[in-house]
């Protein structure tokens, strides 16, 4: 039944500048009267080479959206396209390969395998796939995150900011089509946050990387090209060229309920 309701009416996306697209995405937890819709018909595109932030109050569905986009979770109905691929039709095996080869992840915490060195962690997705990293690209990424002197260290010998930079390097080293970052600076102080965010920014500007980041921090959102706001499982607004002040203002309006229910298409 997954995605059946809208599959006929929606043609696969032909616009190759779209890296990821959600079409009428629904995610319902529980059944019957206890059913809660975390995503209630979300349709949104993420353009290639863009740095997008997904924001919204707690329970707005922003993390669920990202999990569905990133093939970590399955939607109740609707479709998710990564490039031309409808990932709602893929089995676990294909999803795993997809995550390995096409998607990069940065989580809020616990990004690294504690038994592996920084370098081994960075190369992990490639190693799992049995591929050798492109030396030049690896060097570029490592130099961009400024980790060369730390490559042989284990995660517990690195600071929180360094750990997140290793996670970013891992997400980028396999040149994925899209990187999903779930509150990547949630556990970091402001200096370390700035390091990580500017690194993400640079990888978009210099290497045309596509990044989707879930955050609740307006300062982090200000590093992006575009902010998509979610509330009650719907896309309610979006801002291009955001600044921290504008984002903050929008967030305040959202939490006071002023824009709730106002659909905004991107």
């Amino acid at each position: 039944m997954l995605g059946a309701t809208v599959a006929d009416s929606t043609a696969p996306p032909h616009d190759h500048s779209v890296a990821a697209r959600a079409v009428d995405l629904r995610k319902v937890y529980g059944e019957g009267g206890a059913a809660v819709a975390a995503l209630d018909g979300v349709s949104v595109d993420f353009a290639a080479g863009e740095f997008t932030a997904v924001m919204g109050p707690s329970g707005s569905g922003k993390s669920t959206l990202m999990h569905c986009l990133a093939a970590l979770d399955t939607a109740t109905s609707g479709q998710v396209f990564l490039g031309d691929t409808d990932i709602t039709r893929l089995d676990d095996k294909r999803l795993t390969t997809l995550r390995r080869d096409k998607i990069g992840f940065v989580f809020q915490a616990y990004n690294l395998v504690p038994t592996l060195t920084a370098q081994e962690n960075i190369e992990l997705p490639l190693a799992i796939a049995g591929r050798k990293p492109d030396r030049a690209w690896f060097d570029t990424v490592v130099d961009t995150v400024d980790l060369r002197s730390r490559l042989s260290h284990r995660p517990n010998e690195l600071s929180g900011g360094q750990q997140q930079r290793v996670a970013c390097a891992r997400a980028l080293v396999s040149s994925p089509d899209i990187v999903f970052a779930d509150e990547p600076t949630g556990n970091l102080d402001s200096a370390a946050s700035a390091e990580v965010l500017s690194f993400l920014r640079r990888s978009v500007d210099e290497h045309h990387q596509t990044i989707v980041m879930v955050t609740h921090d307006p300062i982090a959102a200000a590093y992006t090209d575009r902010v998509v706001f979610l509330d009650d499982g719907r896309v309610v607004d979006e801002i291009r060229e955001p600044t921290a002040d504008r984002v903050l203002e929008q967030m305040k309006m959202l939490s006071s309920g002023a824009v709730a229910g106002t659909p905004a298409e991107g």
Binding site: T96, R99, R100, F105, V113, I128, A129
Partner: peptide
């Protein structure tokens, strides 16, 4: 558990 989740997320297959 979390480490297993991470490995799976970055592409480790069930078989692996």
């Amino acid at each position: 558990t979390r480490e297993v989740g991470l490995l799976r997320a970055v592409g480790l297959s069930r078989r692996q």
